[in-house]
Design a binder for these strands. Structure first.
Lengths: 191, 191
DNA sequence: GTCTATAAATGGATAGAC
DNA sequence: GTCTATCCATTTATAGAC
């Protein structure tokens, strides 16, 4: 019902995002989109003339998703650990049934063949996410909840890496490996 | 000179491994191989009738590489930290010029479209690598060099994840992020 | 906005000559 | 083992009618 209300452009981006996370940018086609949406390839080219245009739209969709998720996490009541859990659950939300990975991981994997125009957007999105996690970790450190040595920024990348990597491994080894990895990360940060 | 001595099959696998690490399994073609080797596509099909066959050969090449690298690391004189550095340098070796990632990361990213026959091989290689790192970490823990809470296996996956993830990020953000991440990982394990 | 039709290029794969 | 030639499906993309 809710999906029907979305306009075509949003429908296309939404489905493309799904395929990006399960197959990668170079491994889904306008044909895949047209089949699942029940319209022709030409119609999709009407909305996104080149695949690069669709790619840019995907980056924008990820940015919007980031804003919403980050804001939700910032406003989440409770400790830093609970906020981090909130972010991790956001990670998990894209991993329905161990099939999806982080869309940014997917784009990174395809960096060698990605349209040029998408690269700056990808870098920007990565940085934005790292800034956000660094902010959270710093709060936790100052409140005495988290204990870790070394630069906050380095710890942030390690944390984000763990989430995304665990998601990738889950597709091959099952969901348990995700929980194990996240628990270990928390153990290191609290101990 | 040394390359000239290799037979065709090895030349093909060697080049394919390179392309796997820079572009991904689904994003290089027999045409790419033929162009760079100066022989026709048909000749490559003679050695590897289906791309799946080439994929299996790639998995085997990675296994051989693992054996060599793990053995070198086990025999590396010195502390556990120095052995881990040896493994990390092995990681770096495939990242000439920030362009290559771990071949297993690359295969994981393409898991959605990978030929069925390659999946068990991929899982086996992942497990083999995790077992090896867990062995190293446990030695370090018992000798008192490393201090970390939680299951060794979980710490092993976290360590491997950090190496591979940092390699992926390096392609987008530059090599510095790799060193920063590895230093942070060491900081957490020693502190 | 959606369709039919079509183009041009590419990718995986095979047959058969040398 | 390598080649030429060819096949068929797919992919990105465009033109033009409705």
């Amino acid at each position: 019902m809710q999906i029907r209300l979305k306009n075509r452009k949003e429908q296309i981006v939404s489905l493309a995002l799904d395929l990006l996370q399960t197959r990668g940018f170079e491994n889904f086609s306008y044909q895949d989109l047209s089949r699942e949406l029940g319209i022709t390839k030409a119609s999709i080219h009407h909305h996104f003339p080149k695949k690069e245009d669709l790619g840019i739209a995907l980056c924008h969709a990820i940015e919007v998703w980031h804003e919403r998720e980050f804001s939700k996490t910032r406003n989440h009541p409770g400790s830093t650990i609970e906020k981090l859990d909130c972010y991790v659950n956001g990670c998990l939300r894209y991993a329905c049934g161990d099939k999806k990975i982080c869309p940014l991981s997917s784009l990174q994997a395809d960096i060698g063949t990605l349209p040029e125009a998408m690269r700056p957007a990808l870098k920007r999105l990565d940085d934005h996410e790292l800034d956000f996690i660094a902010e959270l970790l710093e709060q936790g450190q100052q409140s005495g909840e988290l204990k870790f040595a070394g630069p906050v920024r380095s710890q942030a990348i390690l944390f984000v890496l763990a989430c995304k990597g665990a998601l990738q491994y889950s597709r091959v080894h099952g969901r348990q490996i995700f929980d194990d990895t996240m628990n270990q990360m928390k153990t290191l940060l609290i101990a």
